[in-house]
Computed example of a mutant assay.
Amino acid sequence: MSKSAYSHMDEMKQIALQMRRDTISSIYHARSGHPGGSLSCIDILTVLFHKILKPAQKRVDSYSDDYFVLSKGHAVPALYAAFSSRNLISRNSLKTLRHIGSALQGHPDVSKLPLVEVSTGSLGQGVSFAAGIAVALKHQKEAANVFSLVGDGELQEGQIWEMAMFAAQHQLNNFTVIVDYNKLQSDDLNVNISNLEPLDQKWSAFGWEVHEVDGHNMTDIALALSRHSQNLAPKVIIAHTIKGKGIEFMEGQPLWHGSVTMTEEQLVSSLQALGCSSSDIEEYKNAR
């Protein structure tokens, strides 16, 4: 890897760190939210929004920009942090998460914030909508690509596998699904509720091109996302992640799935774990 490539990756790590801080702060001020699954997908979103996607600021008549659909809608604090990192929304607005009248709803709401593309939250529906966008772009002969992030617990929804059949049947090689595979869902380990393994073989059997990566290695994520499909198959990237990544007392703990009300002490501990100075912590604690 060249010196400039190393420099760029260091910059990406700093962006991801800032996004983690912003995500935790927004959930604290909301008095509710889903920190675990938001933190697990930060590195994926960092690569998507700073290396892969050309996001549209507002959809009007042009469909040439890439699309991103957050199917695991409860992780929207991470998406809002990604928007802020691209200066699409202000950092101050992140503290209005889940507040009455705020554009930053607790799940993506396209009527409040068109940047989110699709209103999601009912698991399985977002990625199905994304497949519909991909097939429409094919018919329109547009070169744009569609990306959708799903949770691993979400894969227990039957609608996911209906979508998988549809996308393979229609040869949607402009469509990439990323699985945030943190091995946990709301109440427990996935394996104790409805085991997903062998996950790679399941997707392959449905006709998808399958890649597996460390979901916290941004170099590997970027390589997988930028790799063009070798055939007409849609692509799935199984990203192995850690729920609550970056904050030790949250990592791998079902308790921190959500919805949780964070105390000021927990906020401070989280921000200290993320390398914040005392003055930065005071800024994050302030409501505005």
Results as ranks from 00 to 15, higher is better:
His8Lys: 14
Pro114Ala: 09
Leu184Val: 09
His240Asn: 13
Ser278Ile: 09
Glu197Tyr: 02
Ala136Thr: 07
Gly252Arg: 01
Arg91Thr: 15
Thr120Gly: 01
Ser148Asn: 07
Thr241Trp: 00
Asn92Val: 04
Glu283Tyr: 04
Pro254Asp: 10
Gln18Ile: 08
Ala287Ser: 14
Met163Leu: 12
Val69Gly: 07
Val76Asp: 03
Ser102Phe: 06
Gly132Met: 04
Ile160Met: 12
Leu232Ala: 14
Leu255Gly: 04
Leu274Lys: 09
Asp188Asn: 15
Val177Asn: 01
Asn190Gly: 06
Leu94Ile: 01
Arg227Asn: 13
Asp61Gln: 11
Asp22Leu: 11
Glu157Ser: 07
Asn195Gly: 11
Ala82Tyr: 02
Val76Gln: 04
Ser93Lys: 14
Asn195Arg: 14
Asp180Arg: 02
Met165His: 13
Tyr6Ile: 15
Pro234Trp: 09
Ala205Phe: 10
His139Lys: 14
Val76Ile: 15
Pro55Phe: 04
Lys183Leu: 09
Ala134Leu: 00
Lys138Thr: 00
Glu157Ile: 09
Asn145Trp: 10
Gly151Asn: 00
Ser229Ile: 07
Ile221Ala: 02
Ala287Gly: 02
Val60Asp: 14
Lys3Trp: 14
Arg98Met: 11
Leu232His: 12
Ile27Cys: 08
Ile133His: 00
Gly246Ser: 06
Lys235Gly: 03
Glu162Ser: 09
Ser7Val: 10
Trp161Leu: 04
Ser128Arg: 02
Leu172His: 07
Ser40Glu: 03
Val146Asp: 04
Gly124Ser: 07
Ser279Phe: 08
Leu184Trp: 05
Val213Gln: 03
Gly207Ser: 05
Pro114Gln: 11
Ala130Trp: 00
Met9Asn: 13
Cys276Tyr: 05
Lys243Ile: 03
Phe129Ser: 06
Leu172Gln: 05
Ile44Val: 11
Met19Asn: 05
Ala130Gly: 06
Ala233Val: 01
Val110Arg: 15
Ser62Phe: 01
His50Pro: 05
Cys276Gln: 03
Glu157Phe: 03
Asn217Ile: 05
Met250Asp: 07
Trp256His: 03
Glu264Ile: 11
Ser40Asp: 02
Phe49Ala: 03
Asn87Lys: 15
Gln201Thr: 15
Ala82Pro: 02
Ala273Val: 03
Asp180Gly: 05
Gly73Val: 11
Ile238Leu: 15
Asp180Pro: 01
Thr23Lys: 01
Gly153Ser: 08
Asn182Lys: 06
Gln169Glu: 15
Gln159Cys: 09
Pro35Arg: 05
Ala143Val: 10
Phe175Pro: 01
Val260Ile: 15
Ser269Asp: 15
Gly33Leu: 03
Ile15Gly: 04
Leu123Val: 02
Gln272Asp: 10
Ala233Gly: 05
Cys41Val: 06
Lys3Glu: 15
Ser4Gln: 15
Gly101His: 06
Lys3Asp: 13
Leu17Thr: 11
Asp65Cys: 11
Lys58Ile: 13
Asn92Trp: 07
Leu223Asn: 13
